[in-house]
Design a protein around this nucleic acid. Structure first.
Length: 577
RNA sequence: UGGGAGAUCGUCUAACGGUAGGACAACGGACUCUGACUCCGUUUAUCUAGGUUCGAAUCCUAGUCUCCCAGCCA
């Protein structure tokens, strides 16, 4: 994968570069992207994906995709499939695909070791009791009355937990750290809980499942991860991450990972370093899985891949190219500061990418008939248009032209404001690639609405002729009415109409801020060379914006285009459009 | 009143004791057969108060503000 954006020398790059230079981890660099398969990936994940895969790639290391599937009550195979597809779509390929559940036996042996070492115990306290014993932010907690069970009893109980002798919630395994720690994560956290639930990967082999903090650090170590990159909210967990790795000491206890190799799961245990960075947030967007899930379940959007969703499958369907997402992730940098990226930065990345890489086409989304009266009835020609104004490699295409055209309704005004460069009664405008036409007369319906404009074409201004250079203030786009293909055009706008939909301090929630105009479907006309495009082909419809042929609904006979983003429009911005 | 982290243009982000720079946004202009692209220009920032130093965004002291943590979630 290439990334032409200038690289930030951000703090994680610096740490990795220094570690490699100093020979830490034998100079190896290994990262992982560890999603929990309980939802679809979104742009926030893209930052982590680009960082983890990007760092590995830059430093000649490796990056695994690892499903953090330690909680079968929330996870689903649908998500593990979508996640793989999204990572690949973004442009990355993992070194190995792993699951935390691949290591369930390792976790279990580690728990036995901790018990034997007197570092863990089986606790019979209920969830409510544990909460009461934990203390508060300002008060120390108290030791569990089960904390001093003998090693033998603990080992027996652990084995019986695994054997399924106890109901859900009856017992947990907890590590012994410090119930008076100011860091609540260190107050004898649970590492195992009982859940008589089938697991999407291990079936009914287990009824005890490890907790995140415990499973994650061991998984990292097993995979030989050197730099374990995660988001800021795990900062407080780092002491626990380090405690587990230190007490378990995987690199010096190969018996704990025995059996993995036979299953094709190579293990070269490391002592990884956890490094935290801030999440990517976008304004006018919600990014929490819970809220995205609600939008889908309550049908406030048309599914996980609705083009208005910040999911990767959503932005894909919207027409945002993967390179634009990668550009965004590089452009925003990596720091530990909480931040909110303006949506315009994302749009800028999309425009930059598509301007360079999308072929141009003509399309009209709000049609008004234009008749060239001085062309004979039935007149037809085929014009040659270049596909890209600045890149000849895009080649040319044939565009049919005839006497009756569709133009954009907003490109004609009977009573124009000052500065209007388009068509007005008696005025002239250039028809893109055709020549200069003059508006001679109008047709109107009973309401006075203009139904057609009649023009005369100045034959001297056809391309290639001397008169073609004559200056006229505006150029408008068009399609031939007889040849254009009717198309469904989906015009998308931001899903929320406030910058911070998560802010509920005024009693309103994100649901109250949904933009009712976030999706508009119109019938328009596209030139034949657009209609026949393959699904997911992106075009610039000249003067309108960047559009993509819908991934699922588009066909040559029944074209469907989604608007990814408009063109920057200084006329509209001036309040004139 | 506990623990952890962070404060630099509107928004991101650089600087690692030596000219506060870049990107995006905004605004103005040039160019233009896309009111796009491109190009040029302009505006705007070191949380506060002290201190150290020839020199402080950077070091020290004291504050202020913001974010995260009391799941048998991740």
């Amino acid at each position: 994968m290439t990334n032409e954006a200038p690289l930030h020398n951000h703090f994680i790059r610096q740490i990795v570069a220094e570690d490699r230079a100093s020979g830490k981890h034998g100079g190896a660099v290994a990262t992982r992207f560890p999603p929990e398969p309980n939802g679809y990936l979104h742009i926030g994940h893209a930052k982590s994906i680009c960082l983890n895969f990007g760092i590995a790639e830059e430093f000649g290391g490796r990056c695994n995709l690892r499903f953090d599937d330690t909680n079968p009550t929330k996870e689903d195979i649908e998500y593990v499939e979508s996640i793989q597809q999204d990572v690949r779509w973004l442009g990355f390929e993992w070194n190995e695909l792993r699951h935390a559940s691949d290591y369930f036996e390792v976790f279990y042996r580690c728990a036995e070791k901790l018990i034997r070492d007197g570092k863990a115990f089986v606790c019979d306290l209920s969830a409510e009791e544990v909460r009461a014993y934990r203390g508060t932010l300002t008060e120390a907690g108290r030791n569990s009355p089960f904390r001093d069970r003998s090693v033998e009893e603990n080992l027996d109980l652990l084995q019986r937990m695994r054997a399924g002798e106890f109901p859900d919630g009856a017992r947990t395994v907890r590590v012994k750290i410090d119930m008076s720690s100011g860091n609540i994560n260190l107050r004898d956290p649970a590492i195992y809980r009982i859940r008589h639930v089938e697991h999407q990967n291990t079936g009914n082999a287990w009824c005890i499942y490890p907790m995140y903090d415990y499973a994650h650090c061991i998984s990292d170590a097993v995979e030989g991860i050197t730099h374990s990159l995660c988001t800021l909210e795990f900062e407080d967990h780092r002491p626990l991450y380090e405690w587990c790795l230190r007490e378990i000491d995987l690199p010096n206890h190969p018996e704990l990972v025995a059996g993995l190799a036979e299953r094709g799961l190579g293990a070269q245990p490391s002592t990884p370093q956890q490094i935290e960075f801030s999440r990517l947030n976008l304004d006018f967007t919600v990014m929490s899985k819970r809220k995205l899930m609600t939008l889908v379940e309550e049908k406030l959007v048309d599914g996980w891949d609705d083009p208005r969703m910040p999911t990767l499958s959503g932005v894909r369907r919207r027409g945002f190219p993967p390179r634009a997402i990668r550009l965004l992730c590089e452009r925003i940098g990596v720091t530990k500061q909480n931040s909110v990226i303006e949506f315009s930065v994302l749009e800028g990345c999309v425009r930059e990418e598509l301007d360079a890489n999308a072929a141009r086409r003509l399309a009209v989304i709000d049609p008004l008939k234009l008749v060239i009266d001085n062309l004979p009835e039935g007149h037809g020609e085929t014009l040659t248009f270049s596909n890209h104004p600045k890149n000849e490699a895009f080649g040319t295409r044939a565009v049919p032209f005839s006497r009756e055209l569709w133009i954009e309704r907003e490109d004609f005004m009977e009573v124009p404001p000052k500065g209007f460069h388009r068509l007005v009664p008696g005025g002239e405008v250039r028809l893109r690639g055709v020549g200069i036409v003059k508006c001679e007369r109008l047709e109107k319906d009973a309401d006075g609405t203009v139904t057609a404009v009649h023009c005369s074409l100045d034959a001297e201004t056809r391309p290639g002729l001397a008169g073609a250079d004559r200056k006229v203030k505006g150029t408008i786009h068009w399609v031939s009415a007889a040849h254009a293909v009717a198309a469904e055009i989906r015009l998308y706008d931001r899903l929320f109409n406030v910058a911070d939909p998560d802010d509920d301090s005024d009693g309103k929630t994100y649901r109250d801020h949904l933009n009712p105009d976030s999706k508009r479907v119109v019938q328009g006309w596209v030139e034949p060379a657009a209609a026949g495009a393959a699904a997911e082909t992106a075009f610039q419809f000249e003067r309108l914006g960047f559009f993509v042929a819908d991934r699922y609904d588009h066909s040559a006979g029944k074209p469907v285009f989604n608007r990814a983003v408009t063109l920057r429009d200084s006329w509209a911005k001036a309040g004139k459009g």
